[in-house]
Simulated scan of single mutants.
Amino acid sequence: MKEVELEGILDFLRGAEQLKNTLRSSRTSSGRHESTAEHTWRLCLMILLFESQYPDIDILRLIKICVIHDLGEAISGDIAAVDQVEGMDKGVEERKGLELLIRPLPKILQEEILILWDDYENASSEEALLAKAFDKIETVLQHTQGRNSSDFNYGFNLSYGRRYTNHDDITSRLRALIDKDTKALAEGNNTI
């Protein structure tokens, strides 16, 4: 690898570090806002835990999709699902941010990242569909663990991402368990 390519990779990594500072609307159990990097980490951890349940899935591709799915937020920031309005295409802004972020990388790496991101965005492979399912599951799980504000909308949590979380038996069952916790929290039972 040429020196200029190494420098480009370092520049990219410096830019990607912003995901540690990109805050989501979700709260951690200590009450602070969760970062996009933290969300991505636990999403990847979830995939590793369920790897044996998906013997026909290309797990490396799935993890790659999960690692890059929110990279554009390092530039564009996160737009919470509850803040998205009709006609808004969050993906357009995220892709613009991603294109800017990956500019220092060698072309072959840029292309690989964009292919993976486009696959996720369009849910065009089994790996992308599973990434979307677990992405939504990680989010609703965090909503049941976070120290949320008193006006947190648990009703939204119950409907969020359902078309993806109903992907298969495993993701549907996980979602049902989390929904049970969400309903308890909505009823004011904070002992989950």
Rank of each mutant, 00 (worst) to 15 (best):
K180F: 14
Y120G: 01
T28Y: 12
D78I: 01
L23V: 05
H33Y: 11
I65V: 09
N189W: 09
L62T: 01
H167P: 00
L43E: 04
G77E: 03
I178H: 05
E111R: 05
N190K: 13
F156C: 01
H33N: 15
I59N: 00
G15S: 06
D56T: 13
L19E: 08
R42D: 07
R175T: 13
G146Y: 09
F12D: 03
G155W: 07
A37V: 03
T28F: 14
V67R: 05
R163C: 00
E51D: 11
L43V: 06
S26M: 13
E93Y: 12
E121V: 04
I170A: 04
N153V: 10
D135Y: 04
N166M: 04
L10F: 08
R173N: 10
T182L: 12
D168K: 03
V85R: 14
E17D: 15
I63W: 02
D181H: 11
G146M: 06
E94N: 06
V67C: 07
E3Q: 11
L174Q: 08
T144V: 07
R162N: 10
I192N: 14
W117A: 01
E127L: 08
L141H: 05
D181S: 12
E94L: 11
V4F: 09
G77Y: 04
A133H: 02
R14D: 10
S159P: 00
T182P: 03
T22G: 09
L60V: 06
A37P: 00
F152Q: 06
L60S: 09
G87I: 05
N190D: 08
L130E: 05
E5C: 10
D70W: 00
A186H: 08
H39F: 12
L43W: 06
S52D: 07
T165W: 03
E17A: 14
Q145V: 01
E3N: 08
H33W: 04
L116M: 04
Y164N: 12
V82M: 12
S29K: 14
D135F: 07
N148E: 13
K107V: 13
L6V: 15
Y154K: 02
A81Y: 11
E127M: 07
V85F: 05
A16W: 15
I63D: 02
Y120V: 01
N189M: 11
L100R: 13
G188W: 09
Y54P: 02
E51K: 14
L19Y: 08
Q53M: 06
R61M: 06
S76G: 10
D78L: 02
E112V: 01
E73V: 00
K107Y: 11
E86N: 06
E112Y: 04
T182W: 14
I102K: 04
C66I: 03
E127Q: 09
Q53C: 11
R32E: 15
A74H: 03
E94D: 10
E127A: 12
S150H: 11
R147D: 07
D118M: 03
R27T: 12
S52K: 13
D89I: 04
D169Y: 01
E38F: 14
D119P: 02
Q145F: 06
S35I: 07
K132Y: 03
L71A: 11
R14A: 10
A128R: 01
D118G: 01
Y164M: 03
V92S: 07
E126C: 02
A81S: 10
A37E: 15
V140A: 03
D119K: 01
S159M: 10
K107D: 13
E93D: 09
F134M: 14
Y160L: 15
R27A: 11
E94P: 01
N157G: 02
L71W: 13
